Amino acid sequence: MELTMLGTAAGRPAEGRNVTAAALTMPPQRGTFWLFDCGEGTQHQLLRAGMKLCKLERIFVTHLHGDHVFGLPGLLGSRSSMGCDAPLTLHGPRGIRHWLETTFSITGAHVHYELEIREIDGDGGVVHEDDQFTVKAAPLNHRIACYGYRIEERPRPGRLDAAKLAELGVPQGPLYAQLKRGEDATLQDGRVIRAADVVGPPIPGRVIAILGDTTPCDAAIRLAEGADLVVHEATFEAALAGKAAEYGHSTTAEAARTARDARAARLLLTHFSGRYRDEDLPRLEAEAREVFPSSAAARDFLNVQLPHKRRT
Rank of each mutant, 00 (worst) to 15 (best):
D130K: 08
N141H: 11
V199M: 00
C84Y: 01
Y176I: 01
R30C: 01
Y176S: 02
I59G: 05
H232L: 10
E129A: 15
L35S: 04
A163H: 05
A288M: 00
A255W: 04
D123M: 13
Q178E: 13
E57H: 05
T107V: 04
D130F: 06
D121Q: 14
Q43V: 13
R310V: 12
A195W: 08
G200N: 01
T4Y: 09
H110G: 07
A259H: 08
A10E: 14
L47Q: 14
H91C: 07
E2S: 15
S81I: 14
M5I: 14
T214S: 15
G242S: 10
A262S: 08
G92R: 02
T62M: 08
P171H: 10
A22H: 10
V126F: 09
S273L: 04
R222M: 13
A145H: 07
A162Q: 11
A23S: 13
G248E: 11
D123R: 15
E233R: 13
M1R: 12
T258K: 00
R48Y: 09
R154P: 01
P155Y: 04
A241G: 15
T215K: 12
Y113S: 09
D278W: 10
Q132W: 12
V19C: 13
L46N: 03
M5K: 10
A227D: 00
K164H: 01
A109K: 02
I106T: 12
G169E: 02
A259P: 13
D189G: 06
R79E: 01
L88Y: 11
G41L: 05
I203F: 04
P293L: 10
A177Q: 11
T252M: 09
L115A: 03
A163R: 11
V230S: 01
E287R: 12
A196Q: 14
V170Q: 02
E153V: 02
R266Y: 00
H142F: 15
I208W: 12
L47F: 11
